[in-house]
Amino acid sequence: MTSNKGFIAFFCLLLAIELICSHFASLQPYRIITKPLLVLSLIIFFLLRAKHLDGISKSLTLLALICSLTGDILLLFAEHTSSFFLAGLIAFLLAHLLYISTFLKRRNPHKKPYLLYALLASYAILIFHLLKNHLGDFMVPVAIYMGVILIMAVTSFLRIKQVSASSFLLVFLGAIFFLISDSILAINKFYTPLAMSHLSIMFTYATAQLFIVLGLIKQR
C-alpha cells in the first residue's frame, strides 16, 4: 500500500510536468520525453506490482500499455501529417481491444447492464452526430474506434462482483475517463478547438491509465 501511494505521488509529479510542458509553447519540444514517461512509468510499476496476476491477464495488460505508449508517441507528431494520427488511432484501438480481453476474463455472466448500454449508446450517437460532417476520410476509422471504446467501457463494468469493490471501481472509472479524454480529443480535432484542450485531454487520459493499472493490480 505504501509503495502504491509513493508511485501515485511520483506519477502525479510526472503528470504535472507534462501538463506544464503541454501548456507552454516554449516547453512543448520536451513532451517527447515527458509524455511517454507517464505510460512508461506505469509499465514498470505494473511489472513490479502485478506478479500475483495470472500470466494471460498480465501479458494482455502489458501489451495494452505498450500499444498506448506507441500511440502516445505517434500522436506527438499528428500535427505534421494525418498519417501519424491514423497510426496513433490504430495503436489505441489495439490497446482497447487488449483491455477488453483482460476485463472479459473476470466478466460477471449474470449482469446485463441495459441501462448502461442505453446511456453509452446515446452518448456515442450524440458525439458522432456532432462530428460526422467534419470527419472526412476519418469517418470509418473514428466510427470503429468509438464502437471499440464503448465496448471497453461496458466490459469494465461487467467485472462487477467478480473482483473486489476497489478493483472494480478503479477500472470502471478509468474506462470512463478514457472515454471522456477521447471525446475531448475528437471534438477538439474535428469539430472546434477547445480552450486548454491539451490539459484536459492529458489529465483525463493519464488518470484513466493510472486507475486501470491500479484497479487491475488490486484484482485477486
Score class of each variant (00 low, 15 high):
N133V: 05
L158H: 02
K161I: 06
T155A: 10
Q209W: 10
H134T: 03
H23C: 05
L179H: 10
L40V: 10
T2H: 09
I187N: 07
Y145H: 13
S101V: 04
S22L: 11
L47S: 02
E79S: 01
L115D: 00
T34E: 01
L86K: 06
L97I: 13
F85C: 02
N188P: 03
T155E: 13
I73Q: 01
M139K: 15
L74K: 02
Y114V: 10
S181G: 12
F11M: 03
A64Q: 04
S59M: 09
M152C: 12
L48G: 08
T61S: 04
A9K: 11
A87T: 06
A208S: 14
F7H: 13
F103N: 01
L60K: 02
I144S: 14
A16V: 13
S122C: 15
F84S: 07
K51I: 09
F92H: 03
R220F: 15
R159M: 12
V39A: 03
S68G: 13
I100D: 04
I17G: 01
E79D: 04
P113H: 04
G174I: 01
L130F: 15
S68Y: 08
V140R: 15
L13V: 14
P36I: 04
L126W: 15
K111C: 07
M139V: 13
A118E: 10
N133D: 13
M146K: 09
I66F: 13
L150A: 07
N188T: 09
L210C: 12
V140E: 15
I90Q: 02
L65C: 03
L74H: 02
P36H: 03
A206L: 11
K58N: 01
I73M: 01
L104K: 13
L126E: 15
A175L: 03
I144F: 15
L48A: 12
L170P: 00
G71M: 02
L37M: 10
P36R: 01
S181L: 11
I20K: 08
L135C: 13
F177I: 00
T61K: 02
L173Q: 03
L120S: 11
L216H: 14
I151H: 11
L135R: 11
F138M: 15
F85S: 00
K161T: 11
V171R: 01
L185R: 06
L27P: 04
P193A: 02
A78H: 07
A124L: 11
L169M: 11
L199D: 07
F11V: 04
L42M: 08
V163E: 03
H96E: 06
L150G: 08
P109F: 12
S181R: 11
S22V: 08
A78C: 06
N4E: 11
H52A: 05
T70K: 06
I180Y: 12
L86N: 03
L179Y: 14
N188D: 14
T192F: 08
V154W: 01
L150Q: 08
L15F: 09
P109Y: 13
S68H: 09
H96W: 10
F178S: 10
K35H: 07
S164P: 05
S164I: 08
A118H: 10
